[in-house]
């Protein structure tokens, strides 16, 4: 389905915070000014929805920047990119009918930040792999004796499996060290190259310690797994994607 052309009074919704926060100064999606709509002790950061919404780099960055500014002031429920309310009334009535649930969720992330840690396979340590793995060593010797295309492909494939295995093992080790430091964790999708993608909910005060542990792990396993940390982020991964239906 192509990008929807939005209604005139539709609002782009960035996130929900306790009432009383300052409106973000950073321009929102499509450069629109961001304002706050307040109801029942909660407020929603919104801007006029752009006529057409597309995942442009500057709009993704604007979404993120507005949320960063709000998150710096206290607890925040970040919306996913590209969430619109059909009009202001619908938004206010949602805040009214779902106050308890939204407030509970805000309490769940109060004083917390999200840090996202990713790990990618590093193809190193071939000598190590060959020395430790008898089958691989045999394959390497055989390939050297009769070096042809097929043999090289087989050897390379075995090495790729080996470095992946090593990276996955390192990723498990990293998780074992980091998980105890977090209140909650959410695992993202991984694949053959990105073997670690996990978000951690941390008390803000624990961020420094967390980063130290990541740095120590990165030094320790840098020849097998390349670690990267992103954050502190608004707690994207630690809000219920869909709140309870109104009235519950």
């Amino acid at each position: 389905m192509p990008a929807t052309t939005t209604a005139v009074d539709a609002l782009y919704v960035y996130g929900i915070a306790p009432a009383g926060v300052r409106a973000p100064r950073h321009p929102g999606v499509d450069g629109a000014p961001v304002r706050l709509l307040t109801e029942s002790g909660l407020c929603a950061a919104v801007s006029d929805a752009p006529a057409r919404l597309r995942p442009r780099r500057r709009d993704l960055l604007a979404h993120q920047a507005v949320l960063d500014e709000l998150a710096a002031q206290g607890p925040l429920l970040p919306m996913r990119f590209a969430v619109l309310s059909p009009d202001p009334d619908a938004l206010l009535s949602q805040l009214r009918s779902d106050t308890a649930h939204l407030t509970r969720q805000l309490d769940g992330v109060r004083g917390c930040v999200e840090l996202n840690v990713k790990g990618a396979v590093v193809p190193g340590c071939f000598a190590d792999l060959v020395r430790r793995d008898e089958k691989l060593r045999e394959l390497a010797h055989r390939t050297r004796r009769r070096p042809d295309y097929e043999a090289n492909v087989r050897l390379g494939e075995a090495l790729a499996r080996g470095v992946r295995r090593e990276a996955r093992r390192a990723a498990r080790d990293v998780l074992a060290h980091l998980t105890p430091l977090a209140l909650r964790t959410v695992h993202g999708t991984t694949d053959d190259e990105h073997v670690l993608s996990t978000s951690f909910l941390l008390r803000s005060a624990d961020e420094g310690r967390f980063r130290q542990v990541v740095a120590a792990r990165a030094r320790d396993c840098g020849d097998r797994l390349a670690l990267s940390v992103t954050g502190p982020l608004p707690c994207y991964s630690f809000v219920d994607p869909r709140p309870a239906p109104a009235g519950r």
Partner: peptide
């Protein structure tokens, strides 16, 4: 992936499909 796949979505709101 966090901005696009995580974060809150509210039922009465619309999530624009992104080409």
């Amino acid at each position: 992936e966090l901005i696009l796949d995580r974060g809150m979505v509210i039922d009465v709101f619309v999530r624009v499909s992104l080409v």
